[in-house]
Amino acid sequence: MRLSPGPQRRGPEQDLPRGAASTWLRVHGRLLASGFRRGAAYRGAALGGLVANVTFGFLKVSVLTAAVAAGGGELGGYDEAAIIAYAWLSQALLGSVNLFGRTDLADRIKDGSVAVDLLRPLDVQTATTAQEVGRALFQLLPRGLPIIVLGVLVGGMRLPTDPATLALGLLSALLAVLLSFLLVYLVAATGFWTVETRGVQVLYMIVSGFLAGLFVPVTLFPQWLYALALATPFPSLLQVPIDVISGRVDGAAALGVVGVQVAWVAAVFAVGHLMTRAGRRRLEVQGG
């Protein structure tokens, strides 16, 4: 992974000083765009991901609709249409929301090339997150949209048509993508201390998927487990954006859950920032 987005005539730090904030935005905008282009380069992988997401989507829909039918047409507040929307929307978001915990940064910390990133006049956390989010947002095109179209055409999914609801849903989805990469940054940043982060990554994969509601909506959990899930940022990765997009949660309640997402983004960002500061002092790169 390169932090500079392709050949440039001048480095971002040499840009005209039009205020730190606008420089920051422009640089990170470019990183986001370069990540987006990078995602576009792997078409085969995107197609493979789509096939996998669709297959799992059909399996999830079958078992969840059977559960709703067995519950007499209603299961924990979900009717058939709502559970179908849940299954397909979760599959659509899965290509962009990182529930696997893997990033290039973990490899760069392991092989020491992160030392180069730390020399750049850019914050490692914001720069890598911008690139990874850009890459993930590209995945919405080959993996997210086709699944939503498929869900509507074949799966019988219905979505709200009210522009305000959809706009809030889109915002919620973007926050979920951002939050996931801020969380995965924490996973990678443990490498400043441990070098090898595979164990933490696998743990993240197991826990985040379950508590985000990847296979079963978090709202169907028993009370104690639901409370436990809500104490973590994970429901904000899938359950919340799905609830907002599908209109299951609307009005002031929708604004509330999106507010919770924003709070998690801020908190996880702050933790990542502190870890970066502490970690760059701990980092030991071997070799010359």
Binding site: A45, G48, A52, L59
Partner: peptide
């Protein structure tokens, strides 16, 4: 495929998930 290993994951790991389901819901 080379680059699209997720395509076969759909069948291998999708198959693993499917194997634990009651096939009667399909």
């Amino acid at each position: 495929l080379v680059d699209a290993s997720e395509m076969t994951n759909a069948v291998v790991y999708g198959g693993r998930y499917a194997a634990t389901q009651p096939a009667s819901v399909w």
